[in-house]
Amino acid sequence: MSMLASLDVVVTDVVTVNSLIKRFHFARADGSPLPAFSGGAHIVIEMQDGDTIRRTPYSLMSSPLNTQDYQVSIRRDDEGRGGSLFMHNKVTKGMSMKIGYPANLFSLDKRAPKHLMFAGGIGITPFLAQIHQLIKTNGNFELHYSARNEELGAYSEELKQLLGHRLHVYYDDQDQRIDFDALLSSQPTGTHVYVCGPAPMIEHVIQRSAAHGWPDAHVHFEHFAKAPPGEAFTVELQTSNKKIEVGENQSMLEAMEAAGVDAPYLCRGGACGQCETNVLECDGNLQHEDHWLEDDERASGKKVMPCVSRFKGSRLVLDR
């Protein structure tokens, strides 16, 4: 990953979890231990897909204490730009890959007397790692996990064994729903709430916790935007003095990297703010897809997050 040190790994196993989800196991290529990490961390996986290099973030689900075996679970997205399809269709046991060091944008607040967790579907993965960490430190938590149906409720059986009464599972097809209002109005002072799942679930928890008077700092969410595919467009990079084409299935950040322009990033999902770039000229419309910029920054037309956002128009010049 350009400037930063990364990890050389080998795919040690690929396991089919259900009809949509596969789990990938990684070990270090030279056999030495992988770095320890903190629950909620993600890794960016680098994929050599033909001529294109994709880098996509996935939450680590294995125990942070396990330095021999990193695990991620990936849900196949047939509509996406191809990251999950590449992993599902092309990645096999024994392959060599590169991953970034773990980075955490969804960390537990270690001061909390209690952690209240809401997971939706594949959003269960960061919680799996956090739960290992909390069990080890005798942390107080409860997990509410909703899935479309029993088949897609990945890992619910293992979690029942591990957590007992601390786990509550809800299946949409059995009309089971998390009662967010009851839960958010009955937590002891100092509790932190965490949500990872579909965007409407995250929005709902943010909105309901605010309505119940929770401070923002006690509400945590993992919200990686996906870089959507779209029409190709051209970007001028003033500092590097380059003009680059952004392909239909490519993000601006990926196009910069392909052109040898070093651009900072952490999450590649519009959440961390590291790739924020100044817009010098814009004749057209910026299509913002991130969760980072404030409304007034978007309105100003002076900022863009190239990891997920796109452009439609005749001319875009960036300060990069």
Partner: peptide
């Protein structure tokens, strides 16, 4: 008083 309260206290 604060020790006995729930989240959502202003």
């Amino acid at each position: 008083s604060l020790d006995r309260m729930r989240m959502g206290t202003q």
